[in-house]
Design a protein around this nucleic acid. Structure first.
Lengths: 125, 125
DNA sequence: TAGGTTAGTCTACAATTGTAGTCAATACCG
DNA sequence: CGGTATTGACTACAATTGTAGACTAACCTA
């Protein structure tokens, strides 16, 4: 596991996270709106994801149904970790500060964050 | 600007952010600890960064001094945006929740976050 | 001043990535 | 049943990325 997933592969995986299992054609259809990829391209990317162990495929009649092995949550967890490590010295606070600076925090976000923090303080003893 | 910066290129840029301007050999020396790259590799990567417009170089005697054009802050801002967009639906709160779940928030982080939020609430009317 | 040291320039080359095309088998439609 | 559409398998191919080596000019040192 943990083979690097490329940008294009990520898009496909993301489409699979939307709903799985799904046939290649379904995935391609979902991506059609965002990307302008041919069906073949999507199939190639699915195959690469399978090779990389991020996606499983099981025969269903004469086609395959694909299903993510790597969950979005697990992926996000990892990505968040390495992202924060690389750019924010492993600490979340500067990241939030940065998001705040670039005006990416809505009032709702702020309220939600406060709630999360309250939770955290309660939980940790 | 905004040409895609690869992982290896990022490492070099990151070393340049540490202190600039710097000669290629200095950058290579800094990276020596983390990566085991040859001096040539570092030079190639610097050249690519220059091509991509992320780094400037000015002659200094018979060598060049390199200096980042793209600041770490600007880079981080962008990266944070697209990162949050891709994985957290553009919203910071779920990201923080995720970091919290994976135990990546220290008590200090939490305190700091609270301070940031307080600031934010004050600032925005 | 001759030989090592250091910088820059050019070239290399396999692996990965983005983006499909072709072909063959199967299935469905009229 | 015969054509058309669908699906997977195999192949392709340029651009980017990772990782340097070779060669040359200039410097520094004994």
């Amino acid at each position: 596991m943990a083979e690097k997933i490329s940008d294009a592969e990520f898009e496909v995986l993301d489409a699979l996270w939307e709903a799985a299992p799904a046939a290649a054609s379904e995935v391609a259809a979902r991506l059609k709106r965002r990307k302008n990829w041919s069906a073949q391209t999507v199939k190639t990317l699915l195959a690469r994801l399978v090779e990389k162990g991020a996606v499983a495929h099981a025969p269903d009649g004469r086609r395959y149904l694909y299903r993510p092995i790597l969950s979005k949550d697990a992926y996000a967890r990892n990505a968040a970790k390495s992202f924060v490590d690389r750019l924010f010295d492993g600490r979340a606070a500067p990241l939030v500060a940065n998001l705040a600076d670039s005006g990416r925090l809505t009032k709702d976000d702020i309220a939600e964050l406060e709630a999360i923090l309250k939770e955290l303080k309660r939980d940790r003893r």
